[in-house]
Nucleic acid binder design. Structure first.
Length: 482
DNA sequence: TTTTGAGTTGTTCGA
DNA sequence: GTCGAACAACTCAAA
């Protein structure tokens, strides 16, 4: 009896998984396979936080299969090599997988296709990781969009995504299972010091956790999304679905349709709901950008940035930023949230990133690499597109003279300082007036709050008047008209 | 082909 | 404290 092999990559879910559903409906027994692939050339090795997430996500997915009398087979190695081994051992009728958009995806998928052709079996490729595929959203002249607003207009005018598919109820098992690694064999969890306690507290990886997150957000967060999404201290103001989307535990079109349904039932939520979907479209936009510019993770889209005068590498400066010891409370709070929970609020990501790139003049790829290692939602498309956006070298980037002021940003978006107090406890007793600029507090106020600048909390690592001007001067040198 | 309007997320300065 | 203007120039997308 031959089987339909379903290759799982960044689609670790049962519901609305077109490749899985097609395999189930093919009438063959189904062989679900996940390959931990660190060997395909050019492929980025997962960062530490992502590995933790993946471990738990795979455990959840495996449970889902077991509940349906099936199994998830785990392997390690280059995807095509592993697949070849399985084709040698098992009578496979077809290979089903979700397409990727990463720089290595086309070559990988060509390899799968060739393998299948040689074996004389079906090779079926599906979408589902985006709301809109890159082929579906083009300008009138047939080019990909490079400006978000017209992209979003085109998304809204395009055919809406298909309705989500239900999870298969019954999945037929093959007569015999090929051998599987144990989940522990994949070595996804930290070996030495266990730094994952904050992640465990903050997250529930897996399809169930993703669905719950969406339900909670639609019920209590979406209605105030526009007003509250920029306030990092407000719990539940954003969906926090990004890591679930990253691993494909929930499909974006499920989010799309559940949000549309909510709007249809309560039309007064339309503006907030559409604003949320607009953010979801930013994810598509980044993927399209990466798909059309495979160099995006490494090379500035604006080529004049090749000559940008970044500062000489300074390990101590970079380290201070990474550890949340810059002396700017909102930046430090963000960097510590990241370290503790594997996540940082979107607004704070912009502030912290702007500080690295503009006030420290450290190359955006350093920030990209750190986020890649520490974010549970680290995603090559969003990460590289967003860093380029902040640095000013992206397709639809911030203008170079827009340099975030961490004090003003803190006062505007964390007015009571609750977010800073949560992640920078050594400042928690400072009055609101100084929570974002402790260096301006009089000595007696600092003392009363138990703050000794330069001792319990760092002095600001730059004079922003100087660093801001230095950034403006640096950008001046690469202006095209110069 | 040419033209036109517009572009995620801001800050500073001076009135 | 509040407000408007300046900060630049470029190029995209569509009419």
């Amino acid at each position: 009896m031959s089987v339909a092999l379903v290759l799982f990559q960044d689609n670790l879910r049962l519901a609305d998984n077109p490749a899985l559903t097609a395999a189930v409906e093919s009438g063959h027994a189904v062989l679900p396979l996940f390959v931990l692939d660190n060997e395909t050339p050019g492929r980025w090795r997962l960062g530490g936080a992502s590995r933790w997430w993946l471990h738990h996500s795979l455990a959840q997915l495996a449970n889902g299969f077991e509940e349906r009398g099936s199994r998830l087979i785990l392997r390690q190695g280059a995807t095509t090599a592993v697949l070849q081994q399985i084709l040698d051992d098992v009578d496979v009728a077809g290979v089903y997988f979700a397409r990727g958009y990463a720089p290595w995806s086309p070559a990988l998928e060509d390899g799968l296709k060739k393998l299948c052709d040689t074996a004389g079996i079906d090779c079926r490729r599906y979408g589902g990781h985006l709301v809109f595929e890159p082929e579906a959203i083009k300008t009138q002249s047939g080019n990909p969009y490079t400006v978000f607003t017209p992209f979003w207009r085109a998304c809204q005018a395009a055919d809406p995504p298909a309705q989500p598919l239900p999870a298969p109820k019954k999945i037929e098992s093959p007569a015999a299972w090929p051998k599987s690694d144990r989940l522990e064999d994949l070595d996804l969890l930290p070996q030495g010091v266990d730094w994952t306690a904050g992640l465990v507290d903050a997250w529930s990886p897996g399809e169930g956790g993703a669905t719950q997150r969406l339900n909670t957000f639609l019920k209590s967060g979406m209605g105030h999304y526009k007003d509250r999404r920029d306030l990092p201290a407000v719990d539940g103001a954003t969906s926090r679905l990004s890591p679930h989307l990253r691993f494909g535990e929930i499909s974006p079109r499920t989010i799309w349709w559940r949000t549309r349904d909510r709007i249809a039932k309560q039309p007064e939520t339309a503006a907030n709901g559409m604003h949320f979907l607009r953010e979801l479209a930013w994810r598509d936009f980044s993927y399209h950008l990466l798909f059309n510019n495979p160099d995006l993770p490494d090379v500035p889209l604006k080529d004049n940035f090749a000559a940008f005068p970044w500062a000489e590498p300074d390990h101590k400066m970079l380290r201070a930023w990474q550890q949340g010891k810059t002396g700017f409370p909102i930046v430090d709070a963000g960097m510590r949230e990241l370290w503790q929970t594997g996540y940082m609020h979107n607004r704070v990501r912009m502030i912290a990133a702007s500080f690295l790139v503009k006030d420290l003049l450290i190359h955006w790829r350093e920030g990209e690499a750190w986020f890649w290692d520490t974010l549970v939602d680290a995603d090559i498309a969003n990460n590289s597109a967003s860093w380029q956006w902040v640095a000013g070298c992206g397709a639809d980037a911030a203008p170079y003279f827009r340099i975030f002021n961490p004090v003003l940003q803190g006062e505007k978006f964390d007015p009571g300082g609750a977010y800073v107090r949560r992640y920078v406890p050594e400042l928690s007793k400072l009055p609101d007036k100084f929570i974002h600029k402790p260096w301006e507090a009089p000595e007696d106020v600092l003392q009363a709050a138990g703050v000794a600048l330069g001792d319990t909390y760092p002095m600001p690592m730059v004079d922003r008047k100087i660093s801001r001007q230095r950034a403006l001067d640096a950008y001046e040198t690469i202006k095209k008209s110069a």
